[in-house]
Design a binder for these strands. Structure first.
Lengths: 221, 221
DNA sequence: ATTAAAAGTTAGACAAATCTAACTTTATTT
DNA sequence: AAATAAAGTTAGATTTGTCTAACTTTTAAT
């Protein structure tokens, strides 16, 4: 059985797209920053995870999750997202407030519990932030989301998720009354300050590049 | 903030009735047995908890929870019982299967979560095993349960809980179709083997002394 | 191509929770 | 009351995950 710390390393590696065979690889430096530990700690842990055949790497080399490491990581993500869904849909938590608690709940060890919870939630496919929930078998439904940052001007899109789930971003969205499911149009870019103009329910808003990059959307026909 | 280990020590101390001023005191030996660690480990931890003003004791002396230690312990019990209630009432777990998972869930740190869960469960006062759930403020409703072992023969009683919650006992009860809420009568004692005869829905059963001692009941008028 | 900066590694130290083994104190027998 | 057993304590070791500080390798800049 893995410790919570080991699980967190695996989860972050998956989050950074470190699956086997993936060209882009994250540096252990970035991992250290993300986990808020020193590089030496990361190095120690990576050796341990390599020993357990969950991570693959050579000194000074690239870093990958093994298939086994990826499977473990996916199950942690699954637990995290199911718990977030529970907190929002059933306990009526605000979507900005669930992340921290889910970080704890994702380490509860009981596959049976997650199956029961999945059923109780009626087998959700996405969490409250629009992120896909992998199946029991570790499969993600294929994903047609694109970033609003990659959409051409004057396209109607539906918001299906957020890339970042920090409270500062989510509370900002709440303030703007922009929810998942909203139909918006990216209507103009202001050269002056790199800001964007979006239309939402008759209103026009001005938001930053960072803002639009962090919205997942799908084009509407 | 307390570690899970520290929380477990406090919980067990409360479970053994180690509140301040309580005459009967548990030995650190028994605590070690219960926690399945060595006596020296208990000793180390007790020193640490004393340092934090959660436990009170002198070398070779009696052992008590301080008021602060008791409060912490009660909150852990509250979390444990609310989670058990959730697992049984909402996720439809068997009452014999929830203890282990609740042992993990009781360490999740979020008072807000427990308030939300309490509300979601409609403010239950007892858990699936009939044990009282303390309030947010740490108070137990007063408790009129007595052990079936202390009831006189030929008394009608209602089963309101189980003293022990081991799967072996709970599954046995399931097999006998005896549930919480059942009305039974302790009808005779067999001198031959110290067994007892109980009547339940027209049927007569023979059970051990240990069995009846582990049922909480209240007499029916 | 050197040099400087950044990234990665190693060795040695620390805190938490445990252990073993030796010891002391208290309780129980005879 | 002395001997024995049980309970409790202490010291020193171990494991996990972290750290600092020194070092090596790789990458980037001039």
């Amino acid at each position: 059985m893995l410790s919570q710390t080991e699980e967190n390393y695996l989860k972050h590696l998956l989050h950074f797209g470190m699956q086997e065979g993936n060209a882009k690889g994250i540096s252990s430096r970035q991992l250290a920053d993300k986990l808020e530990v020193k590089a030496s700690s990361v190095n120690d842990m990576l050796k341990k995870l390599k020993e357990k055949n969950l991570v693959q790497f050579e000194p000074y080399g690239k870093l990958f999750l093994t298939t086994e490491g990826e499977q473990k990581a996916v199950q942690i993500i699954r637990k995290h997202r199911l718990w977030e869904t529970f907190l929002v849909n059933k306990l009526k938590f605000n979507w900005a407030d669930v992340h921290e608690i889910a970080e704890q709940l994702e380490h509860i060890q009981s596959a049976h519990l997650m199956d029961k919870l999945d059923e109780f939630l009626d087998f959700p496919t996405v969490d409250p932030h629009g992120d896909p929930i992998p199946t029991r078998e570790g499969l993600f439904k294929d994903d047609q989301r694109i970033s609003l940052g990659d959409v051409e001007l004057n396209t109607l899109v539906k918001i299906v998720g957020v890339k970042e789930d920090s409270p500062s971003f989510l509370n900002y969205l709440d303030k703007l009354k922009i929810q998942i499911g909203a139909i918006i149009e990216l209507s103009a870019k202001e050269e002056f300050d790199e800001s964007y103009q979006i239309k939402h329910e008759e209103k026009t808003l001005h938001v930053s590049q960072k803002f639009i990059e962090n919205l997942w959307v799908i084009p509407t026909s």
